[in-house]
Design a protein around this nucleic acid. Sequence first.
DNA 1: CCGCCTCCGTACGGTGCCGTATGGTTTTCC
DNA 2: GGAAAACCATACGGCACCGTACGGAGGCGG
Lengths: 184, 184
Amino acid sequence: MKRKLAREDWADAALEALCEGGVAAIAVEPLAAKLGTTKGSFYWHFANRSALVEAAVRRWAEQDTEALITLLDGISDPERRLRELFTLVFGGKDDERVELALLAHAGDPVIGPLLADVTARRVDFIVRCFREMGRPETEARHRGLLAYTAFIGLIQARRASGGTLLPATERPGYLEFLRGIITG
Amino acid sequence: MKRKLAREDWADAALEALCEGGVAAIAVEPLAAKLGTTKGSFYWHFANRSALVEAAVRRWAEQDTEALITLLDGISDPERRLRELFTLVFGGKDDERVELALLAHAGDPVIGPLLADVTARRVDFIVRCFREMGRPETEARHRGLLAYTAFIGLIQARRASGGTLLPATERPGYLEFLRGIITG
DNA sequence: CCGCCTCCGTACGGTGCCGTATGGTTTTCC
DNA sequence: GGAAAACCATACGGCACCGTACGGAGGCGG
């Protein structure tokens, strides 16, 4: 058996490690150990460590935002589209961990630019929804920004509080409140 | 001259480094160099590196939230109190950098608990304002949470976008929008 | 069957940091 | 002014990781 390792295997392992221990956990030697191989393999597929984190981030961006956006763009009614985004993003699997880990290293020279792209694309997407719902331009921008920052802030604050901030039972209530207040 | 160094000098230098390069930048040897001294000094004042980051975080918590809270608690009218908080926190010096650096390492065993305390105290403070304004309990909690997360999310997203997200000219407008929508 | 290209193992040197050991220097206080 | 205590410099060992060098194994076309 013993499938050979490919670039993607390393990238996936890097994302996994990223969830566990942050960007610092994307380290060649530990990853090699976890994959049951050695550095020799790694440095054949990648030039260096930076290339790996770049590949990992790109993979995440592809799967977790581009795919989602193209999926949601299939919904023509902007209100339904937005509603769908809400439920997907809050109710879904909590892969917020990659999110948080990357946000944490926005200053990193390789993560920074990629993250900036993703952030811009996401906010644009939300703003577009409000625009298509007929809101005037600046209001659409404001509401879009609020929606996104409320999301980012929530996952961030929940983590910062150790999870005590919004217990599971109060979550649906708050989300309803949020939806109401944001969509006006 | 040549003042001797005290614990506080190290803690301040640590906070400074924290702003520049994140928690990883709180490293003994580089800090010693920047302070013009050596590790010998450090390990006399502190048991190890963890003790330093703890001291730094405590100092920050003291200056940047406890002091602010006791200051604002001098204002009896909750609405004015909240308004004051808004302007202080958004318009003021952008020491959000410490904020962001710490948020980034909420998982750290020494930072985590301290950060959880600070987060809880802040949200409680805001929620209390809404409560004293006569809002029913759950609504007060919701609005308080939204206010805090919108703040955290905004500084986070601005950083993540490289600063392009909310240009300075649009800032006042958005803040007005925010204030309006949050206080209902 | 042979040489080649892909892929990986091993071994090495280098770096940046942590923490300890130990002795020297300054301050304090009697 | 001299001992004790506070404070700091230097030197060392250790660890975790990066990146390179190089030498194989295995498949594949000729």
